[in-house]
């Protein structure tokens, strides 16, 4: 009986932080052993980003704003937020979601399930792709530049409140959490489908709807799309809410209507984003657990 008691604390509470730290370090060591590859990957993702930026610079040569309230620098802050969130998701979760599908196919998932630690935690964070974070820093620079431009311009400068700077990281984290939930749910479906090769494609097509301010989705097709991707699959909340927090005056300024419908304004969106985050994480957890119960090991 004594021995049971001494054993128990060890097996019941795995040291999550220590495990996380080890995984982060191992990934960095791994990335650093192929240094030129790391450099090339960083440059590659930077180049794509620059090209994107070039396209929007071109668009803004022809128009002053994209939608009411989304001028050049507001939109660049939006773009920076997209990059920020995507770089985090790509660094931490993308390689793992891909690996997860592969583990199911090969039967290697057995080893993850046998370990005395939460399977979702282990699977979600096993490998970190550090090179994707190069975009993170460029995004920060772009964000800082856009905010500086917005606050110092002559007509209608942006009043920057300390709370905006505090709420921004929170909502960026919410966005990351929503995308993570979507990704791990999609990856978990490969337990049922056997193989999920088009994970990347599907992911790209859905998240595509998060890339622009939600105001642009209007009309017969646009409004249903906006409502669907806000309330059913909340990908439109992901970038829109943090980008709004940093670029649209909320307190002390007239909050612009989000055009969600009558009575649905900015404050509503701020509350809803938190709710959507909690809901997404919960749903992803549920899908993950359900999928695991259907898992039949692929090995003999």
């Amino acid at each position: 009986m004594n021995s049971r008691q001494t054993l128990r604390p060890q097996s019941a509470r795995p040291a999550y932080l220590a495990v996380l730290w080890t995984m982060l370090r191992n990934s960095l060591v791994r990335d650093m052993s192929f240094r030129s590859n790391f450099l090339i990957e960083s440059i590659t993702s930077l180049a794509w980003m620059m090209m994107n930026l070039g396209f929007y610079l071109l668009v803004f040569k022809f128009t002053r704003e994209l939608a009411p309230g989304w001028g050049k620098y507001e939109f660049f802050a939006f773009l920076a937020t997209t990059m920020l969130i995507n770089s985090v998701v790509q660094a931490f979760f993308m390689p793992n979601a891909e690996e997860f599908s592969e583990m199911i196919r090969t039967g290697n998932l057995d080893f993850a399930l046998l370990k005395p630690i939460d399977a979702q935690f282990l699977i979600s964070l096993q490998r970190v792709n550090w090179s994707s974070l190069s975009n993170f820093f460029v995004a920060i620079a772009l964000l800082a530049y856009s905010v500086w431009k917005m606050t110092t311009r002559e007509t209608a400068p942006l009043p920057l409140h300390p709370w905006m700077l505090m709420a921004y990281p929170l909502y960026v984290a919410c966005g990351v959490a929503i995308l993570y939930s979507l990704m791990i749910s999609l990856a978990a479906t490969s337990i049922w489908l056997g193989r999920n090769q088009s994970l990347y494609d599907f992911w790209f097509y859905i998240t595509n709807f998060s890339r622009y301010p939600m105001e642009i989705y209007e009309g017969q097709v646009g409004t249903p799309l906006r409502l669907f991707f806000t309330f059913i699959i909340p990908v439109m909340v992901v970038v829109n809410v943090p980008a709004r927090v940093i670029s649209q005056p909320l307190i002390g300024g007239a909050g612009r209507d989000v055009a969600l419908g009558p009575g649905l304004d900015q404050q509503f969106l701020l509350g809803f984003a938190l709710l959507a985050t909690a809901g997404s994480l919960g749903a992803a957890r549920w899908v993950f657990q359900r999928a695991l119960t259907s898992y039949r090991s692929a090995s003999s």
Binding site: T63, D201, F204, N208, F209, G222, L225
Partner: peptide, 23 residues
Amino acid sequence: GTLMRFLPIVTQIFLWHAVFTAV
């Protein structure tokens, strides 16, 4: 796959609609 490949165009169309409305 082919049908799905048209999806990104949808967002592109909305983007241009917004631009044309603005100008």
